[in-house]
Design a protein around this nucleic acid. Structure first.
Length: 150
DNA sequence: GCCAACGTTGGC
DNA sequence: GCCAACGTTGGC
């Protein structure tokens, strides 16, 4: 079992949206590194949900991979903001995974808390200049972060 | 709104 | 293949 973190701007898609829907195909990732991480995800892997570009920035809950990587349909939709005219149906460029809601944390584990918590050295999220929307998380880091939820 | 960091594009 | 220009991310 592996652990991951995925970012979303809550104005676009939030933990509350996920809770309502139950499941979500994580479409719109258009970064090769992030795509490759999603392709590594296995059914049942745990995923931290991170709100970026928000009033309260941080980890807001937990999800689980409910379907492994498959082609992101939005890359073929001319009207979609995620449309990629260079991607061919016989060789799709972009993938996504489907995730399901597990829990919303009682409080947000803020970026500030993460920065001040010992033992999170090396967490990719905290690396200077890191903008990846999908990153792996070490098991030890995952446990520490979940432990901060209340 | 600013800007640092980073990825992508395209001319050469 | 290099690299300048440009676009995007995301914290502040």
């Amino acid at each position: 079992m592996k652990y991951w973190m995925m970012k979303s701007e809550p104005d676009v898609f939030s933990i509350d949206d996920l809770q309502k829907k139950g499941l979500e195909p994580w479409n719109g990732v258009r970064n090769y590194q992030a795509r490759n991480f999603m392709r590594e995800m296995k059914l049942g892997d745990k995923v931290l949900f991170y709100h970026s570009n928000a009033k309260e920035i941080g980890v807001v809950g937990l999800m689980e991979v409910s379907k492994e990587a498959y082609p992101d349909p939005t890359q073929f939709l001319a009207k979609s903001e995620y449309y990629d005219p260079a991607s061919k149906k016989e060789d799709p460029r972009w993938s996504l995974v489907e995730v399901k809601f597990v829990e919303k944390f009682p409080r947000i584990v803020t970026l500030e808390m993460l920065k001040q918590t010992a033992g999170l050295d090396g967490l990719l999220l905290l690396r200077k200049g890191n903008r990846l929307s999908v990153t792996p998380v070490e098991a030890a880091h995952f446990k520490i972060i979940v432990g901060l939820k209340k």
